[in-house]
Computed example of a mutant assay.
Amino acid sequence: MHVRPAPPTSTAAPASAITGSAWVTSLAVPDGPSRTQVDRVQFAPGARTRWHRHPLGQVLVVTDGTGYVQRRGGPAQLVRPGDTVRVAAGEWHWHGATDTSPMTHLAIEEIPADGTPTEIGDPVAGAEPAPATPAPVTRTLVLEQRLPAPRLVDLVEIRRITIAPGHGSGLHVHNGPVFGSVEAGSAVYEIEGEPASVLRPGDVFYEPEAARIARFDAQDDGVTFIAHFPVGPGETPRLDLLDS
C-alpha cells in the first residue's frame, strides 16, 4: 500500500484536446500490473473536450459544477455532482462544462498494455444536437466544514478581495474561521505545515481560526475571491501579519 499526498499543482489541458480552459491533476498512474489511470479535470465555463474515444473506455465521476456529456449519435445530457458516466470502449464522445458554470470530474480509465493512445477528433461543432436545457434551479454543495469547537457568531462579513499578479498576503492568522471561493484568476494556497494547492475559479477554501496561513499568493493572472468572515459579539474580523 502506498499513500500519495494530494498533488499540489495541476497542469493546463492541451489545446489539441480541449476547447477553452481546463486543468488536469494526475491522481494515479499505471504502476506494475495495474493499468489504471485517474485524473481530476476542472473545466472553466464553456470549456469542453474535442470528440474523442478511448481504446478501453472510460468512467467519469462528476464531483462539482454542472456539465454535459454526449456520445456520437445521441443527445447531450446534463450531468451534476454525484453522476457517473460509463463510456464504452471505442465510443466517440465529448464532455465539458456548461456555458455558465465550471465542472469538475474524475476521469478513470485503463491504459492498454500496448500503449494505444486516446484518439482525438474534431472540435464539437455548432451543428451538434443542442444540449439539454438546464434545470431552472440547481443547488450544489461546494463545502461542508465542521468547526473544531462550537462558536457563537453574531456577525458575518463578506468581502470581495483582489490580489494583483505576483503578490501575496504574507504569513498571517485570522481571529475567526474564513470560508472563501475563487471567482477569477488563481492563487497558491498553503496552511503552514501542509501541502500547497492551486485555487482556480470555482474552488473553495477554509482557513481555520488562528491557523498560520503560509501562502495565499496570486499567480500571473492575479486572483479575485469572495471571503466570508464570521465572528462573535464584540469582535471585528481581523488579519494579523506574522514574521516569516
Rank of each mutant, 00 (worst) to 15 (best):
V3K: 05
P5L: 08
A6D: 05
P7H: 01
P7G: 00
P8Y: 05
S10F: 07
T11C: 06
A13Y: 02
A15W: 08
S16Q: 11
I18S: 02
T19Q: 13
S21P: 03
S21A: 15
S21V: 15
W23E: 06
W23A: 08
S26N: 14
S26C: 13
A28S: 12
V29I: 11
P30R: 09
G32Q: 10
P33E: 12
P33C: 05
P33L: 09
S34P: 06
D39L: 15
D39Q: 14
Q42F: 02
F43E: 02
A44W: 01
P45N: 02
P45Y: 01
G46I: 05
G46Y: 03
A47C: 09
R50G: 00
R50D: 00
W51E: 06
H54V: 08
P55K: 07
G57E: 03
Q58P: 09
Q58Y: 08
Q58L: 12
V61H: 14
D64W: 02
R71Y: 00
Q77P: 00
L78D: 06
R80S: 10
P81C: 07
G82Y: 10
D83F: 13
V87C: 08
A89L: 07
A89W: 08
G96F: 06
G96H: 04
G96N: 09
T98C: 05
D99H: 09
S101W: 05
M103I: 10
H105L: 11
A107R: 03
I108C: 13
I108T: 12
E109R: 12
P112N: 08
A113Q: 11
I120C: 00
I120L: 04
A127I: 02
A127E: 10
A130R: 12
A130M: 09
A135F: 00
P136A: 06
T138W: 00
T138L: 02
T138H: 04
T140A: 08
L143S: 07
E144R: 13
E144M: 04
R146G: 11
R146I: 09
L147Y: 10
L147K: 03
L147H: 06
P148A: 06
P148F: 03
P150L: 13
P150D: 15
R151Q: 15
L152V: 15
D154Y: 09
D154M: 07
L155W: 07
R159L: 14
R159A: 15
I161V: 15
T162E: 11
G168R: 02
S169N: 08
L171G: 03
N175M: 12
F179V: 11
F179I: 12
E183N: 11
E183W: 08
A184N: 08
G185Y: 01
V188W: 01
Y189A: 04
E190K: 12
E190R: 15
E190S: 03
G193Q: 10
G193L: 12
G193Y: 10
A196D: 04
V198D: 01
R200S: 03
P201T: 04
G202H: 04
G202M: 03
Y206R: 02
E207D: 10
E209Q: 14
E209L: 07
A210Q: 14
A211V: 14
A211T: 13
A211H: 13
A211I: 10
R212F: 08
R212V: 14
R212P: 04
I213H: 13
I213M: 14
I213C: 09
A214C: 06
A214L: 12
R215F: 05
R215K: 13
D217P: 00
V223L: 02
V223I: 13
F229N: 04
P230D: 06
V231R: 01
G234D: 08
E235R: 07
L241Q: 14
D243S: 15
S244W: 06
